[in-house]
């Protein structure tokens, strides 16, 4: 019996020693509580408070500083990104569609691979693919308003003029269960339905004839062409159709994932 208690005592001693070390041997850190989805009152916002919102998102919910910090070297610093946007969008390696710093920063968050700063690409991809996730989806899940606030913050941080306008009101379909978060379509059919493409085009189940027939468009046009045709409809006008017919603001309305779903859908329509 004596041995039994010795063994039990020894085991308890070891366990308590580990517990003591874990409690007192290392610095105490309180993990940050889970992020709270903030409700934004856009009406009462000044540009300063909008920038401050971007600051909070950048340093908090957006988890941007996990990688974009001065210590780790995992991602480029963003303090002058607004100033550099001009040269980036005219870079030969640039694959996106933005023309100004606002568009560039926004795009870099929803489509990070559009431009990868040299040295920060995924290993083995020769800086063509970014390791950064699309921050409008997944666990970070920034809404359009939040993304714009981050753009405003980054522009201000770089000392450029803040060109972002505070969204006056959240689009109607955004006022769903979680504050300003909108429901993003999951399938191309939903996208087509939501944005009313079938009113004019022959696509999916639609039979519109005011715009070009898109049922076989993938055989003739590249994805880049299709993406531009949605974002900037007047860039190329199909023979027999008039310019300025199609709304030019789908780029603002659609989530990047929706745009990509749609482009993929059309590109695969052969």
């Amino acid at each position: 019996m004596k041995k039994f208690f010795q063994v039990v005592g020894f085991s308890l001693f070891a366990i308590v020693a580990f517990a003591l070390f874990a409690n007192y041997g290392i610095p105490k850190i309180n993990p940050a509580p889970p992020p709270v989805e903030e409700k934004v009152d856009l009406g009462a916002m000044t540009i300063e408070s909008f920038i401050a919102l971007g600051d909070r998102i950048f340093n908090g919910k957006g988890t941007c500083t996990l990688c974009h910090n001065a210590v780790g070297g995992r991602a480029p610093m963003l303090d002058s990104v607004a100033a550099k946007a001009g040269e980036r969008v005219s870079d030969a390696r640039y694959k996106g569609t933005a023309t100004d710093s606002e568009g560039y920063i926004y795009e870099s968050m929803v489509e990070p691979s559009a431009f990868v700063v040299v040295g920060f690409g995924k290993s083995g991809t020769n800086d063509t693919v970014s390791p950064m996730p699309n921050v409008s989806t997944g666990s970070i899940g920034l809404s359009d308003v939040e993304l714009k606030a981050v753009v405003a913050y980054l522009q201000d941080k770089a000392g450029s003029d803040v060109t972002v306008e505070i969204p006056t009101e959240a689009p109607a379909d955004e006022e769903q269960e979680e504050g300003a978060e909108r429901v993003v379509a999951k399938t191309a059919e939903e996208v087509i339905e939501n944005y009313g493409c079938t009113m004019c085009h022959k696509i999916a189940a639609g039979e519109g004839d005011m715009g070009p027939d898109l049922t076989k468009i993938g055989a003739a046009k590249s994805r880049e062409y299709l993406r531009r045709a949605i974002l900037d409809p007047n860039a190329n006008i199909a023979v027999g159709f008039d310019p300025d017919m199609m709304p030019g603001d789908f780029g603002d309305q659609m989530a990047a994932s929706e745009l990509e779903l749609l482009v993929k859908y059309m590109a695969d329509s052969k």
């Binding site: 366990i15 580990f18 517990a19 874990a22 409690n23 290392i26 105490k28 850190i29 993990p31 889970p34």
Partner: peptide
């Protein structure tokens, strides 16, 4: 929320016992 390391260590100790 994520519990602190100390709390986790105490839980682990209790479990081990």
């Amino acid at each position: 929320f994520t519990p602190t390391l100390g709390f986790a260590a105490n839980m682990v100790s209790a479990g081990t016992i």
